[in-house]
């Protein structure tokens, strides 16, 4: 059920999910599909947050453990874990998360800036904070979710 907040011209739909004990959300427009966890083939010398690649109907899809990417303890994926397939520019990647929790509608005015005390990692990904029913959901951007260059991986 969409958790409706204020609706105005700037409103957008967000998909919320749990990673560890935290909740995050991304713009629903980026999401291509949500699927269950399947074992990934490890890539040599990949950053720790790249779990490997899986076969998505013939395409090779990299899987990012969002927990590791956000500086949290690594996910130990089970069948209950979920892969959110997102489109970033011309590429599709899978985000390994614990579970999808909500679909929200929020406008810019609902989104608060994150406090200045946050770490660099948070600053890189967290674009704002969204208070919902006493929960705090972090809106994250995915532009830098994959390694930018080979240097980072080496």
């Amino acid at each position: 059920m969409p958790n409706s907040m204020q609706t105005d011209a700037n409103s957008r739909e967000l998909i919320a999910f749990r990673v560890g004990r935290q909740e995050f959300c991304i713009n629903v427009m980026m999401v291509r599909e949500i699927r269950g966890w399947t074992a990934a083939t490890a890539l040599p010398r990949a950053p720790r947050y790249v779990r490997g690649v899986i076969n998505l109907r013939g395409a090779v899809l990299p899987i990012v453990d969002l927990a590791v990417r956000l500086g949290l303890p690594a996910t130990d994926p089970t069948e209950r874990n979920v892969i959110i397939v997102v489109q970033i520019a011309h590429q599709q990647i899978g985000l390994l998360v614990d579970a999808v929790s909500d679909i929200l509608t929020a406008s810019d005015s609902n989104i608060q800036t994150s406090p200045d005390v946050s770490s660099d990692l948070v600053k890189t990904f967290v674009k704002g904070l969204l208070p919902v029913d006493g929960r705090m959901i972090s809106l994250i951007g995915l532009d830098n979710v994959l390694p930018a260059s080979e240097l980072e991986a080496a």
Binding site: A40, T41, L43, P44, R45, V53, N55, V60, P147
Partner: peptide, 23 residues
């Protein structure tokens, strides 16, 4: 191609999908 959704991986030329559906 690995580059299509990821990037070139040193030591790896490309990928394929095996009979069990795994890469």
């Amino acid at each position: 191609s690995l580059e299509a959704n990821y990037r070139a991986v040193p030591g790896i030329a490309a990928a394929t999908v095996m009979g069990d559906g795994r890469v």
